[in-house]
Design a protein around this nucleic acid. Structure first.
Lengths: 290, 290
DNA sequence: ATTTTTTTGAAGAATTTATTCATATTCCCA
DNA sequence: TGGGAATATGAATAAATTCTTCAAAAAAAT
């Protein structure tokens, strides 16, 4: 096994080493140096033999060259070049990014999604979250109300809670929402989902639930929208979404993030139970996979 | 199979490749993977023999491991690690700077979600994405197949595409999937969703679709899982998820991100149409809000 | 219980890396 | 300008590493 001794500290470009040694290299070695400098990006894929042949010198000369510029062996030299190149490339890329020239829609979407999460985290009222989790824990039943895109999020929410053994219900049909709401009492919790905070169907259903005494938690982007007036707890989800871009990824991620916080928060409070339920639900789908 | 996956050019973290192949590795190979992940900074100084001895397996197994995660030879793998490490070092420092905050479960979940997005972006094969978008554009019909948690994602996908005026279908019942698949032809595209890449129902349905000539695109975390063998295009979604934590937020976000890329990519290609459709769908829900 | 398939590493072939040493070249001084 | 010391060079060869083949062992399927 080879030992690494020459801990070349910082990532100084190899070019520097070569240049600083250049005058002390022999003629043949300089030819090696020339080719290495010229083909910097590719050298790392050559073997000593390749390199020697390309330059037109013996392998020994190449070896001697490597040692003179400060590496113990050819392998070490090659490794150093590899690192070096990746740094160089990295810088190249950074520059491109800053110039905004290489900004593909991919990185734009990524940035957008990430900021939805950060936004949500920063807007979060931890006290409200705590309280919401407490209510959910104590509630006889928990219903997620949402229609349209937020209805899908309601289904996701139900799925998440089921995984930790908490049976909740997602109601995504406005009529059934209304009917369900009318059966609730102050032992129940309803979680309303709507990004705009203005979705008629959901709000109407929440009103009914509220009239029957149920606790209302809402997850919305708009802190001063109709839904907040009829909610006991408001959790804000990030990911700005204009009416024109309904169902955007950012908004969805914001909602999911809040739901995950509720779910994880609850799981932490009921650790043993949640864990065993996670295990059970996981095992239950085990024979569904190849 | 006309696979267009794993174009290994940019500086994508090797960790990612290893993780995404992990389940498809044999027991001995996984031992290799474990040690590589653990000793990432040093592996580049080991020879195959060293590494094999340290893990306690034959050199051949190490070689096989390298090939499975996508490198042609040990040298190439080592070179890649070297590049990777020099990048990682830089980032490490950046992260250290930020670590002044108190780490609640909130920031932990946020970090987890963010890295799911970053991971997905970094694993993304742009050529495959392009091709997928092209296929979707030309297809007579596009069906999303998924069951369980991935079924919900299929519904999200349908919703997203509908917003830009592309009627697609989400099929989340395995029987109906099978029946639907049997009606498809080579003019149709099916997009299979499964994080594990091993979901029986989905895979069985995809097989039927494939037999009938349909184009298969799959979105999965695991690069070498059963689903990839029957797919024409594989798009990897980030957000590692052990069997124990099915339906995790990170995995869901990874899937959604990929779907958004497809959707946005398509929208960019058919700009005018998509815009007008966005407007129409948005207006259609306008009288649903207060 | 038996066959088939997969997994595995030992043996050795092929390649790559490193060393030795004889020859070639350069340099210095008479 | 010639002769000898010093240096430079690569062919030959040794050492090491990488890679392949193949048969045995383990696991999976029947």
């Amino acid at each position: 096994m080879q030992v690494i001794q020459n801990q070349k500290q910082a990532n100084k470009p190899i070019k520097t080493y070569i240049n600083s040694c250049y005058p002390s290299l022999t003629k043949s070695e300089q030819k090696v140096a020339d080719l290495v400098l010229e083909k910097m990006e590719n050298v790392m894929y050559y073997s000593v033999t390749d390199l020697a042949d390309m330059v037109g010198v013996g392998e020994t000369t190449v070896l001697r060259f490597c040692r003179k510029i400060g590496y113990k062996a050819y392998q070490e030299f090659k490794l150093a070049i590899a690192k070096d190149q990746s740094n160089a490339q990295g810088e190249q890329q950074e520059n491109d990014d800053e110039n905004g020239k290489h900004e593909t829609f991919i990185s734009a979407i990524a940035a957008n999604s990430i900021s939805a999460i950060q936004e949500t985290a920063s807007m979060l009222d931890e006290a409200a979250l705590e309280k919401a989790i407490e209510w959910i824990e104590k509630a006889r039943s928990v219903h997620f109300f949402g229609v349209g895109t937020s209805g899908l999020t309601a289904l996701d929410a139900k799925n998440r809670f089921l995984r930790i053994g908490r049976r909740t219900d997602a109601v995504i049909d406005s009529h059934i929402q209304a009917m369900t709401a009318s059966t609730l009492t102050n032992e129940d919790v309803v979680i309303g989902l709507t990004v705009s905070g203005s979705t008629k169907d959901t709000i109407d259903s929440l009103k009914i639930a509220r009239e029957n005494g149920a606790h209302i938690i809402s997850i919305t982007y708009y802190a001063r929208s109709p839904i907040t007036k009829i909610s006991d707890i408001v959790l804000l989800s990030g990911g700005k979404e204009s009416p024109m871009e309904g169902g955007s990824l950012a908004a969805k991620i914001g909602q999911l993030f809040v739901i995950d916080l509720l779910c994880t928060g609850l799981a932490l409070r009921t650790k043993d139970f949640s864990l065993s339920m996670k295990e059970r639900t996981a095992r239950s789908v085990l024979d569904k996979i190849y």
